[in-house]
């Protein structure tokens, strides 16, 4: 190899090293939308199959909050299954995240049913609901839209709802939202970024 070639490759390597160094200084990119500064969201008390659950009792952990309904055959289960997969990739760090599923359809989902539904995805997932009135207040508090559609001739109805997942930091403030459709590895990446911040 002649001297010119050595010089050229040396410069290329130097350039790559500088680029990598620069990138490591930048704040890590999130796949979801980071909320900066984190937004205080307030507290709530809803019901699981085994009684009252208050959001603030999870302070110290990240809370992954998802609003949906159990008669939803595709988006809700896909989201919960994606969270299960992402958390299983995190291994023992998964215990730093608490997944809470809130049913916005208390007319069909009892607290017991919401709880059992959520725990089918992962035994650590919590499923909650409350009175129609409380659900309305909590959804509004967290910026979640939902609407019960008119029933068809057979009495079946669907529910429109915000499909994003909310992530609250260990002090209960909103730090991140995930739109529907992110893949488990993308969720896992964001979870790892959050854990580094903690």
């Amino acid at each position: 190899m002649n001297r010119q070639a050595i010089l050229f490759f040396g410069l290329v390597l130097l350039f790559i090293a500088a680029l990598l160094g620069y990138q490591s200084l930048l704040p890590p990119q999130m796949n979801g939308s980071a909320i900066e500064p984190p937004a205080a969201m307030g507290d709530f008390t809803l019901q699981s199959g085994s009684g009252d659950v208050t959001l603030s009792q999870f302070q110290g952990q990240y809370v992954i909050l998802y609003f949906g309904y159990t008669s939803c055959p595709d988006v809700c289960p896909t989201t919960l299954a994606g969270l299960r997969e992402a958390l299983s990739r995190l291994g023992d760090k998964a215990s730093q995240f608490q997944v809470i599923f809130v049913s916005v359809d208390p007319g069909r989902d009892s607290p017991a049913y919401a709880s059992t539904y959520a725990s089918r995805f992962n035994s650590a997932f919590l499923g909650l609901t409350g009175s129609a009135e409380t659900i309305g207040v909590v959804a509004k508090q967290f910026g979640i839209f939902y609407k019960l559609n008119p029933a068809d001739a057979s009495g079946f109805y669907t529910v429109d709802h915000t499909a994003s997942v909310l992530v609250l930091n260990p002090s209960g403030s909103l730090v991140l939202t995930w739109p529907y459709g992110l893949q488990p590895d993308q969720l896992e990446e964001d979870m790892r970024v959050l854990l580094k911040k903690k």
Binding site: S71, C72, P73, A112, Y113, Y117, R120, G155
Partner: peptide, 18 residues
């Protein structure tokens, strides 16, 4: 799962879906 097998006290309209 069926709603009745999932701890629901009553079977709400139409039971479970898939």
């Amino acid at each position: 799962s069926m709603k009745s097998e999932m701890g629901a006290e009553t079977m709400p309209a139409h039971g479970a879906v898939s």
